[in-house]
Design a protein around this nucleic acid. Structure first.
Lengths: 161, 161
DNA sequence: TGCCTATCCATTCGTATGAATCTATTCTCC
DNA sequence: GGAGAATAGATTCATACGAATGGATAGGCA
């Protein structure tokens, strides 16, 4: 009898926060992913567009951080978006290594439409669910807690080595 | 002046639950991803291993659902894991279309070690954070709420069309 | 039984991904 | 001012990804 059919860590996943977070994300996002597909926008591209719409023009590195994506992935996606005329990249005057990314009017229009759809779908999906603002608050709090920990760890490394 | 530098939907992301979920996941998981990289296990593979360890032997389709991954992605990853001797696939006796996936002893050993690391890292990261069990509870509740909605919607489609 | 449909999983194939690396530019400090 | 370190971002390239599809098996029904 091959394999180890007994679950040796029962309910690990059911208590493992990353799994729960990912599962909630996927379940909640599924309907919107269909919208994106119809619009011909990849998920990685949507992340860039929504960040730009929300935060305004950004350098590539800042965009990568805000969009939770690795920098090369951002550069690739930006080229696709640029080819479609949805964003522009302009060399920063002060530091010519830097490129400032901005939505074009067409990009902004598309993004605002997508955000409207996302908001609508989220509202529909979550109608009847309660404690959402508290959930959001907890998630923000958890993330900033973790980020402050990471910052402290980095500082420690600097001090130690 | 190219672009639309004004943010027309300020704070959309800061209220958009999928973004918050994803951000929390990435921030929390980052240290463990380094562990996976050292172990030579891809994230998609880790998801399969942890599900198998947690739930026991599964058919490919069930594995895909539980691991939150598309079925072809699961099939690809399973081949890699099989090549490394971490899982086995056996044809089900009753229904010969089905393949039952099981961890090998080596796969189970590796997975238990990874789960131990994950648990340890999560514990370290979350030490000092409070209200975690409530957060987990809310996430489970949100997901099952969304899933019941989706089930209802599917039923509706059946009735209507 | 024979046919039609549904289901399970594998495969194909074009594209996206991201680790590693490279180039260009700026900063630091003597 | 010039050498070396540091940083921004582009590029390369091997690989993973997943939508679409195919092949095999099972179920339903005449």
């Amino acid at each position: 009898m091959p394999g180890c059919s007994t679950a040796l860590t029962p309910d690990f996943l059911d208590r493992y926060l990353p799994y729960l977070l990912r599962k909630a994300d996927q379940t909640l996002s599924a309907p919107f992913y269909a919208v994106l597909a119809r619009a011909g926008v990849a998920r990685s591209e949507w992340r860039l567009l929504s960040v730009l719409q929300d935060l305004g023009d950004l350098r590539v590195a800042d965009l990568a951080v805000a969009a939770l994506s690795p920098q090369p992935t951002v550069t690739h996606a930006l080229r696709r978006l640029e080819d479609r005329g949805l964003v522009t990249k302009t060399v920063d005057g002060d530091d010519r290594r830097q490129r400032v990314v901005a939505l074009t009017p067409a990009g902004s229009t598309l993004t605002r439409a997508l955000i409207a759809d996302a908001t609508l779908l989220e509202g529909e999906a979550l109608a009847g669910a309660d404690g959402l603002e508290e959930l959001a608050q907890r998630l923000r709090g958890l993330t900033s807690f973790l980020e402050s920990l990471a910052a402290t760890a980095v500082d420690d490394e600097v001090w130690v080595g």
